[in-house]
Write a protein that binds this DNA or RNA. Structure first.
Lengths: 156, 156
DNA sequence: CCTCCAAATGAAAATGATTTTCATTATCTC
DNA sequence: GAGATAATGAAAATCATTTTCATTTGGAGG
């Protein structure tokens, strides 16, 4: 599980190296958080990361998870996603691949949308003298499994 | 200030009527919150609304502001905006006019962007079997007054 | 106009996510 | 391997927001 040369493993090591070269020490806790985050299918909260990372390093504290996530974000290795419940979600950044989110209002799943067609809006920003350097887009609706017309919907 | 027939005043009365017909009582506190919100140039937090509404109704409590804002959102008269600081911002909805936000990373100002060119992305969502019913977009960058090249920038 | 009651209010306490403090532990440089 | 210093964990602190509960008040019905 640890010593294969898979792409995932190479990415993991790369992130560790980034952290180290940014002046951070590599600890078992940070490895666990990083691995947990990499295992997550989509953006999730600190509590979720904690639960999963604990399976790797059981005495891991929630505080350390918060600190590690903050460090990852600071170093550009992870990013946050804001939904409507007052909790911050985190996800690793794959290279610099920019993406948005499809948030299902029924089951709460968060899928990625790799396409980004915002050039037009960025120009609209420019037009008003505003220089856009970043943006965040979340799309809300119903995923394939939760289509109201599709059969199995779920009261929530 | 209260009895002119301006468009703003008509909108204010319309919102009161909406609240009333949704089964809410009209109180001095709610009037104050609604007026304060209408005076705000852009989305701002409950604390800000409270400060401004207090100038109209001084014994207004922050709790009431929260409750009133929640009611306004529930009735579709206001909406929330999520930025990166963990605080919810509120703004009145003008009719159903959909817009996004231009958040200045230097001075923190929040301007509106009326254009919405997201049809393309919505189709992208559809393509994956996801039915988009709503979306939220925030653009970050530098407003006209804060352009790094423009002269007066502000360390933050 | 008056009464009544559910809805609204405010103060204080509770909550829940996140951050800070501080004493202890452990990484990594030399 | 030793030492400086960053990282950790537990507990306490914060901060925005929500809940509780006793009191007040809007507005429907008389």
């Amino acid at each position: 599980m640890v010593r294969d040369g898979s792409a995932a493993e190479r990415r993991f090591e790369g992130r560790l190296r980034s952290l180290r070269s940014a002046g951070h020490r590599i600890t078992a806790q940070r490895r666990a958080v990083l691995r947990a985050l990499a295992m997550m299918g989509c953006a999730c909260g600190a509590e979720d990361v904690h639960a999963r990372a604990r399976r790797i390093y059981p005495r891991l504290g929630l505080v350390t998870v918060y600190r590690t996530l903050a460090a990852l974000v600071r170093e550009g290795l992870a990013q946050t996603v804001q939904l409507d419940d007052g909790r911050v979600r985190y996800e690793l950044r794959d290279d610099g691949r920019h993406h948005h989110h499809l948030v299902c209002l029924s089951c709460g799943s968060i899928a990625r949308l790799e396409a980004c067609a915002l050039g037009r809006l960025q120009s609209a920003g420019l037009r008003r003298g505003f220089r856009v350097t970043a943006h965040r887009l979340e799309l809300f609706g119903y995923c394939e499994d939760c289509q109201p017309s599709g059969g199995r919907h779920e009261a929530r």
